[in-house]
Every structure is written in C-alpha cells, then in structure tokens.
Simulated scan of single mutants.
Amino acid sequence: MHHTPEPSEPRLLGDQSWHAHAACHPTHHHEVDPDLFFPEPDEMDRIREAKSLCAQCPVRKTCLDAALENGDREGIRGGMTEEEREPLHSKLEHRLDYARVNATLAGRDVHLTKSERRAVVRAAYQADIPSERLAWLIKITHEHADKLYRRTRRELRNRTVEQTQLDRTDTVIGFERPTPPASLTRQRDDLGRAA
C-alpha cells in the first residue's frame, strides 16, 4: 500500500507514488487519455475537461508542486495550464514554505528552494543542531555545513548589531519599537522545536 501525502505534507524527493492516487491515473474502470492534458492553446473544450478532472483530484497540489520542482512546463499539471503556471515557475526559488523547512529538520528528504534551504540552515543553527546533522539533512559535506553555520552566525550577529543601533536611535528620537505579533513569535518557536 502506498502512502499518500497529506495536503500539507511535502512529498519526498523522487516519490512518484502519488501518481496512483491522481484523478488522471487510468484504471480498468476509468480510462483517461493522457493527450487530454496536452491540448493546443485554442482547444478550450479539452482544457476545460482536463481542468475539471484536476478539480476532483486528491493529489492536485502535489502534482503542481512536482511540476514546478521538476521544471515541467508542458501540459496541464495541478489544474493549471502552461501559461497559468509560468509565473509560479519564475517565483519558485523564492518560495518559503515552513512545512518543507520543518519536514527537512525532521529528517524528511523534500525539495527545498533557496529560501527554504536558508531557513533550514538558520533554524538548525538556532536549535544548536550539530553541523554534521545539518550536512546529512541537506545533503552537503560537513565542511560546507560548517561554512553555512559561520555565515549564519555572522548574519545573525550583524542583524543584532544593526538592531541595537536602531534601538539606540529610536530611544534618542523618542519612539518605541513595536513588538512582533504573537503569531510570528509562535511560528519561530514552532520552527525551532521541529528538530
């Protein structure tokens, strides 16, 4: 029996088991023409039919994520046409999904964007996860993990120095810095506990 990822659970790298749960997966009782998902731009009836099938699909989000992560630019994937997915492809490297960050910190092998990878490194550093473990989590050498921790330490130190300077300026001018909303503080705490 295959494991179907929950909607909020990122799929593992290389995991294709979700295909068996897709609404477009052909079976003996449900024949689906794969060409339906590769219509010409002016074939509106075929596009509507494909999107209608996608709308019923329990793994639609996983399908869309897989298309974006694999750079699949052809056909209808995850209920979106090539043109509808194009802006998502260009923004993918900036995606920051904390479910993926937490899954990685918990030892799952998921696709990470550059932003998510930086968040994993920062969260691991702040949680005092050894660099050997970070190296294993994100599939890099121990030396590279040490380098990323040095960079993170420097970034956090510089941010603390800048914050202290801003606080001094605010005190001199007479302004008080607002406290971050509890939801942001809680989100940071959750991230740290995931490891």
Rank of each mutant, 00 (worst) to 15 (best):
G79I: 08
R85M: 08
A127R: 09
R48I: 12
T62G: 01
R133W: 05
R151A: 13
T152V: 08
L166F: 10
I173D: 06
T185G: 15
D42A: 11
S17Q: 09
A127V: 11
R73F: 13
G75K: 00
A195Y: 03
D167W: 03
I47W: 06
A182D: 14
E132Y: 00
K139S: 10
P181A: 15
L134T: 04
R48G: 07
K61I: 15
W18C: 08
V101N: 01
D65I: 07
T141D: 06
R150W: 11
R118Y: 12
L112Y: 09
A50H: 05
H3N: 11
A123P: 07
S8E: 13
Q187L: 15
R157P: 08
A123R: 01
L36H: 07
L92Y: 02
V120D: 06
F175D: 14
V32Q: 02
T185L: 13
L68C: 06
T113D: 06
S8W: 14
T141M: 09
T152A: 08
D33I: 12
V59K: 03
T27N: 05
E83R: 01
L96F: 07
L96Q: 11
T113M: 06
S90C: 04
R48E: 11
R100Y: 07
P178V: 06
M1P: 14
A106I: 00
T171G: 14
R108E: 09
P41W: 05
H28L: 13
A20L: 02
I47Y: 06
S183N: 05
K147C: 09
G174C: 10
K139A: 14
D72K: 00
V120W: 08
A127D: 08
K114L: 14
A124T: 09
A124G: 07
T104A: 06
T171M: 07
G71I: 10
R157A: 15
E31Y: 15
R95I: 12
P5Y: 09
H111M: 10
P10Y: 02
C63N: 06
I76T: 02
H3I: 12
D189H: 12
A124R: 02
I47S: 01
V59W: 01
W18Y: 11
K147G: 15
T81E: 00
Q126I: 11
P180D: 09
T27D: 07
A50W: 03
G14P: 03
C24N: 03
H94Y: 10
E143R: 14
R150K: 09
Y98S: 06
A145I: 10
A106Y: 00
E74V: 15
C54F: 03
Q16C: 11
D72P: 04
R95Q: 05
R60I: 12
P180E: 10
Q126C: 12
A22D: 00
H94T: 05
T62H: 08
H3Y: 12
R100T: 08
A123V: 04
A55Q: 04
P41K: 01
A194I: 01
A194N: 01
L96N: 05
P7V: 05
P7M: 03
R159Q: 13
K114C: 13
T62P: 06
K51C: 02
C54Y: 00
Y125K: 08
R60W: 05
F38E: 01
I173V: 14
E84C: 03
A145K: 00
A99G: 07
W136P: 00
E69A: 06
L92H: 02
D97V: 05
R186I: 15
I76M: 04
P87S: 00
A103H: 04
I76H: 01
W136R: 03
E176C: 11
V59P: 03
Q126H: 10
